[in-house]
Amino acid sequence: MAVVSVPKKKRKDDTRLAILFIAPALAGFLVFMIWPTLRGIYLSFTSFNLLTPPEFNGLDNYIRMVQDPVFWNSMVVTVYYVIINIALQTAFALAIAVMMQRLTKRTWLRGVVLTPYLVSNVVAALIFLWILDYQLGLGNRVLELIGMDRIAFLADSAWVIPTIAVINVWRHVGYTALLIFAGLQTIPETMYEAGRMDGASELTMFRRITLPLLRPILALVLIITVVGSFQVFDTVAVTTRGGPVDSSRVLQYYIYDMAFGRFQFGYASAMSVALLLVLIVITFLQYRLTRAEQSDLA
């Protein structure tokens, strides 16, 4: 403490110190992010079964990918999942965040919202697998009690993707709400005071003050959640394993099964590269369309 507090006339060159602090994160980034990505891209041009050395095969994997109906089906299923997941999650998270800010100041109540996020994905999936079980599930008992027919939530091709999307909304909505809530905190209270002076209702203030000023944060939240949503895997692996037939075979699950179930690491890598490209394009578009780098709060 004492050392830092001594002011100096000329600023000391702290590049070395900076490098020292950056180094661990940079090393991790290079070893765990950049290197696997580069190696994955390399492997996408090879035939590789994990155990014998990879053999270069040019664009074979990419040609196969373009012709693979299961791949395109996986793409469609994944996009379908992302749309349901993100639409519901963002709407609920926004509602929860606004309520957290405008209606309550209690920390424990704000904390409760985050609890599902503390449950691991696999555990959440297992719990819902039981709740939604066709024969024994509590969910289907409730449906019967209110006079409806039982629904095979995780075994009917029409229901699986919406069901998995909602399970993950339940799991992530608190976390997303917290991010948005943090964004709401940055909006000065004076804005709302001014609004109230002018006689604006809560709803009008939400539309005219909250939403426009929240846009940069909302954009950031959307970019993070969309990227995360595209990578849905564990819930599918636990509840449906891609079935029935291919109706929940999301891209990440297909990639995993191709690599570790079928030993076709090269082809799996090519599909991972495709997913990477899709995510880059989507993120770029989102960034531009939402003007995430500009704030109206100036």
Binding site: L129, D133, Q135, L154, A155, T240, R241, G243
Partner: peptide
Amino acid sequence: SFAEIGGNNPVGPDKQIQSGL
């Protein structure tokens, strides 16, 4: 049916006999 035995997480034949299904 596929749905009744639990889709891709099916209950086995032993459980089906045991539960009287």
